[in-house]
Structures are given as C-alpha cells and as structure tokens.
C-alpha cells in the first residue's frame, strides 16, 4: 500500500536489512548517548534466526529509505496448555515525525496488527513490549495497548539468599542445552496459564548463540531427571549492575531444584563480585513469593509492561494474573 506522502507501507523483504540498520543506527544514536551501532550479524541473529520467527513492517520512501519500523520478535507460546504465538514489539522507530503523532510509525504499526495479529494460523494472539514513554503514549492512545503491569524486580545480596533444602538435587553448568529441556518446556506449558516455549531450539538461539552476550546456564537434576534450569549473566538493568537472572524454568513441585538453582545464582554472583542477584518476574508468578521467602526483596523499576490481546479468549486481566515471563523474554538482558 502506498500512502499520500509516497511512503510504501509493506512487510519486510529479504534485502531490506541493510536499510533497516542504517535507519536504526541513525535514530537510536540520536536519542541514546551510549548507543552502540548494531551490525548485520546481530540483526540476522535477532530476526532471521529466531526459531519462533519475526514479523517486520516498514514504511519505505520512494528512494528506498526505511522511514519507520514496527517489528515483532515472535514467541511460540502455550496459552492454557494450547499452542499459540506471541509477538514482542522491539526496535520501534521512525525517522520522520517521531513516534508521537499519527504518521509513518503509526501507519506501520496498524499494518503490523492488521496483517499479523489475531486468531488463526500464523497470527499472533498477543503483542506486548516494554515501551519507552513516547512509544507507550502512541501504543495506548492509538493502538489499543493496555498496561499489563508496572514492573517490579526481585533482588538479593548473595549473602542474603537463603534457599530451602536442595537435598537430592545436582546442579551442573552446561555450555549447550540438552534435548531434555523440551520436556521441561512442555511441563511449564501445561501448568502455567500462559508462557513462552522454552525448548532447546529457543533457548539455544536466545542464549548460546547470542552474538554479544555470554550467559551461564545451570541445570538442576533429581533422580527423576531434569527438574529446572537457570540462566544468568552479569549486566546492567534499569541503570544498576548485578547478576541478572536471564531465565528461570522450574516447574511446580520442584522446590529442591529451586533451592539448588538459587544457591548456584548466589555462588555465581559471589564469584563475579556482583552485589546483587536480580530477577524480573510477574508478581503473580508462582516463584514470586518463594523467592521472597528465600531472601529476595522487591523494588520498582522504570518499566511498564504493555500489551494487547487479539484473541476472544484472552484479555488483559487473564494475562496479568497468568502470564509467566522472565527477563530473557525481553531484549533487555
């Protein structure tokens, strides 16, 4: 579709990536003094190689310049135990008119929603993100996004982590996720109201093959097999350094695995000299209270989690109560 100002609003096509990156690096360098330009390898990892897929809509001018983008990293997910797909909005940008008023960006967003969101094969039933204030205003006022929650985090000094007994649990660090994590992902998918699929393909892409960040991964095993996993790295979130819990997957009934993995996280933080272990979880998640009992405290962050469901069976209160996620679901770790 071509609009009045000779912009074409269309889906990404192979070959667009260099022009997307040119705009991306220009737009974000202008607003973020600490911005490091993104290279093509990182772009390909993020969008092309994601095993859950990606969806990108662009506003392109007559010269072929990318003027605006609305992009979603797709997530295979479970909703009430059934397979579904979510999309995390990332890298929203516009080089003309900013995000604030109806313009190329908003038209690009609307095309993204019209062509990719909703019920049915190949569509995303839920789009979400952690928008910056300007994007949140547009999302709320023009695109139907709602507040899922004002995001809190859990934090603890390594010495304050007091896990319960981890008797009978063995923790091992690994460089590669084993095939067994698929069964763990299925368990989580059956017991949580809504959760992204954490199978081997997804975790290996997200953490093992990340082009810049190195993560440490621990598996907790009992006599019955794999009972949980945790992923972490030292980094900065919300302006503070710490050992960031990038992922956490411990099904119900695996209290020993939970305790063992918390002890492992505290040990890694001590080893790396990090003052805090920090986890971003919904306060409605099953882990929220047990982690507080194990010594974590909560505090506010600058982030709001916003989203819009596109299925008749989904609404914001359900997602607020039942959607489980970690920092690794976002692009912030």
């Amino acid at each position: 579709m071509t609009d009045r100002s000779a912009l074409t609003i269309r889906e990404y096509a192979p070959g667009d990536e260099e022009r997307i990156l040119a705009t991306f690096n220009r737009v974000f360098a202008a607003v973020d003094p600490g911005f490091a330009p993104r290279d093509l390898a990182t772009w390909r990892w993020l969008y092309r190689d994601n095993p859950s897929g990606a969806r990108i809509w662009l506003a392109v001018d007559e010269a072929g310049e990318v003027v605006a983008q609305y992009a979603g990293l797709r997530q295979r997910a479970f909703v009430r135990g059934e397979r579904a797909s979510f999309a995390q909005a990332v890298d929203s940008m516009s080089s003309r008119g900013g995000l604030r008023r109806p313009g190329p960006f908003v038209r690009t967003c609307r095309a993204f929603v019209e062509h990719g969101c909703g019920e049915g094969a190949g569509r995303d039933v839920f789009a979400w993100g952690l928008p910056v204030p300007a994007a949140w205003r547009v999302g709320r006022e023009l695109l139907g996004y709602e507040l899922i929650r004002t995001q809190l985090e859990l934090f603890a000094a390594p010495g304050d982590v007091r896990p319960e007994s981890a008797a009978g649990v063995r923790v091992e660090e690994c460089a590669h996720f084993p095939d067994e994590v698929d069964a763990l992902a299925d368990r989580l998918g059956r017991e949580r109201d809504a959760v992204a699929v954490r199978d081997r393909a997804q975790l290996a892409w997200r953490f093992e093959r990340h082009p810049r960040n190195a993560y440490r991964v621990a598996l907790a095993r009992t006599g019955r097999g794999l009972a949980g996993l945790a992923v972490c790295r030292a980094g900065t979130f919300d302006g503070r350094p710490g050992l960031l819990v990038a992922d956490w997957a411990v099904p119900a009934g695996e209290e020993g695995a939970r305790a063992a993995l918390l002890a492992w996280l505290a040990g890694v933080a001590t080893e790396l000299g990090e003052a805090e272990v920090r986890a971003v979880l919904p306060e409605t998640a099953p882990e929220w209270l047990p982690l507080q009992r194990a010594g974590f405290r909560a505090r506010g962050t600058r982030y709001v989690l916003a989203g819009r469901p596109f299925a008749r069976t989904l609404d914001v209160p359900f997602l607020r109560r039942g959607w489980s996620y970690t920092l690794g679901d976002t692009d912030l770790v």
Binding site: L152, W288, Q292, R297, A298, R299, G300, R321
Partner: peptide, 23 residues
C-alpha cells in the same frame, strides 16, 4: 509506594510484596 523508603523497610521487617486485583 515503591519509591518510599518504607517499601524496603517493611520488607526488611518481614513484609512480603503480594499482587492485588487493584489497578
């Protein structure tokens, strides 16, 4: 409020943060 020093002090005194149904 999360920004108040009391939010952390109450937690140090054994209070835990719970979700509510209120927006």
């Amino acid at each position: 409020p999360e920004w108040s020093p009391w939010f952390d002090r109450f937690q140090r005194d054994g209070f835990r943060v719970h979700p509510t149904d209120y927006l």
